[in-house]
Design a protein around this nucleic acid. Structure first.
Lengths: 355, 355
DNA sequence: GTGAAAGCGCTAACAC
DNA sequence: GTGTTAGCGCTTTCAC
């Protein structure tokens, strides 16, 4: 033979390392196309003809191909995941937010990486490092209290970040929520209108929880503006829960026997107060007005039904996720800070307002 | 020059593609070691000398290196993630399980991939495919109702899987939980001992929820064994919630005016029943016994306090995660199926048992 | 205890 | 609309 063409050495591509599945190459072979075409069918279907797409999908299903997202992510330097850090999860405010986020991102083919921080900025940072290492496409963080390194890392990475539900303070990138200060202010204003003069505040711990700090600020401003009693000992911090609420109420009423209303930054705390008041023969709302926060289902069913602050729990999640998705698609959202508002829900645990 | 050594072409390793960070190579250079040594410091620290380890850590911190988990995962064909599918999240049984899982896996450097299925085996399958594509190191699934392809995919992949909280039926690999049948049986037995003869069952939907199906079976067996009224119309299905519980009770008492007890497969349903009974002037536990399931915090604080089934919600999560971790470390757990049990908690919503 | 070479399976970039 | 080439950044394997 005169012309021995130097064939590129396609030699022995023996798979020496363990692999756990089919590769895009097998699909390509079966469909009679190149690997990149299979990749396009999976990631940019609009760039492929209908005929080819059909053939590739047929091959995918026949051999049961599952794409290796790690390889794809390495090549493209991003992954179809969204990282979310929550302080806790055992609370409807958080769990409905998760539901909102997953509902939106799942529809776009993204999955959720979830980390719990217990309000520790250091633990949050660990999760952020882990999410960045996994090349999450976007992040949803809680509150606006973060470690300095969290700020620098996120600034350097350039990935979209949404903070919830606080929309004030030093924001990283985008935010969805409402003003905790305005909400608390509005509720205390309502209590003032009902004629209550000495209003206690039972809140969850303010450490590293900006939204609760804001509520406290709103409470303080309102007590000043409406001429209510002002005294640091009217404010108590405790962990969330019915029993904690009852205990905090005992403490408060011990310190201030003439207390005539309590504003709690959680419905469960408020229900604890009411139960304790009832045990002591204090009538609600006559002798004592009680207001909660969250509007959980029990609030409306409880006797007396609870006056409370209603939040857009689910919408905070969906809106945050939608902001991220817009960025993933290369669009700039209409607004980087979305205020979903709140609502004062007046029920039977507070007296009728004057006039 | 006589001997021109052919130097390996270390030529122009220009980085043409966008990369978002520092690579292991930079750390290696700075620490004066090879990249593989840095990798060992991160993944097998026991195989590296203290001196080298210290130098490498110093370099890592100085330049702020964040490992690319996608690259590591591709090379090793696994990732430090655990995938978990839950039907819902707005429920303490689920949220405390999540807490248990994350507490254990975070300590081992793993992060959680979370998917919600709404009890749809098809949606669960989508999450499983996604988790496998991301080379999750292990999976935690809810219930034992899965799509056929879920079984085949998991069998092929060979990754450790834990099912919770059902420990009966066709198990994939490992399981942690308790017998829903025994729990329901025990509670109905208690109601029988209290002298109730016509016990209704209000449960959440049984479709694709094996644990609720088991509770129903336990109820049916117990009504038979203890000579209680047996009638399919004594069983009602509804979604979880206080309002749903009240509505279901209205339906039940309409059909059976002589009903003298209700067993609800959720405390919130039970509280809805009691509230509705109170509105109708039916005394609990005198005229009507009510039993719940879950032992949420409200159960003990409610008036009357609720007789209920206490579960190991948090422990189910930690135990499942521990089983996975053992497998990750190449060990075989002492038992593949762990029964964490349950407890009947007798309180004031049921009469005193005879004798 | 440490290093060199060779991929893991996919997609960006560019060509046609 | 489709294909070719060259990596993405790490870890495996094997050598010393």
């Amino acid at each position: 033979m005169a012309r021995a063409k130097a064939e590129p050495q396609k030699a022995a591509v023996t798979r020496t390392r363990s692999s756990s599945g089919l590769r895009i190459e097998q699909v390509a072979e079966r469909a009679g196309v190149s690997p990149i075409t299979v990749s396009r069918v999976l990631n940019k279907p609009e760039a492929v003809s209908e005929r080819t797409k059909a053939a590739v999908w047929k091959a995918i299903e026949e051999i049961g191909y599952v794409p290796n997202r790690l390889a794809g992510g390495l090549a493209s330097n991003t992954s179809r995941t969204v990282g979310m850090v929550l302080p806790y999860i055992d609370n409807v405010a958080f769990s409905e937010r998760v539901k909102g986020v997953t509902d939106v991102i799942r529809a776009q083919g993204y999955t959720l990486l979830l980390g719990l921080s217990g309000y520790s900025p250091e633990v949050e940072l660990e999760h952020v490092v882990s999410f960045l290492g996994q090349r999450a496409a976007g992040l949803i963080l809680t509150g606006t209290v973060h470690a300095e390194r969290t700020y620098s890392l996120l600034a350097r990475s350039g990935i979209p970040v949404v903070e919830v539900p606080v929309i004030s303070g030093r924001l990283i990138d985008m935010a969805v929520g409402y003003s905790g200060e305005d909400a608390a202010y509005a509720m205390v204003q309502h209590l003032a209108r009902c004629g209550y003069r000495k209003v206690g505040l039972i809140s969850t711990p303010t450490l590293n929880d900006r939204i609760v700090q804001d509520r406290r600020t709103g409470y303080q401003k309102a007590t000043a503006d409406f001429g209510l009693a002002r005294d640091p000992s009217l404010m108590v911090e405790t962990h969330v829960g019915i029993v904690s609420g009852a205990k905090a109420f005992v403490e408060l009423i011990g310190r201030h026997p003439d207390l005539d209303a309590v504003f709690c930054t959680s419905d469960l705390l408020a229900i604890g107060c009411i139960l304790e008041a009832q045990r002591r023969g204090i009538s609600v709302p006559g002798d004592l007005g009680v207001a909660g926060y969250d509007d959980i289902e029990l609030a409306q069913e409880f006797l007396p039904p609870l006056t409370t602050v209603r939040l857009q729990r689910y919408e905070i999640g969906t809106t945050a996720a939608k902001l991220l998705v817009e960025r993933f698609q290369g669009r700039e959202p209409a607004q980087r800070v979305v205020d979903v508002g709140f609502e004062i829900v007046v029920r039977g645990s507070t007296r009728k307002p004057h006039g």
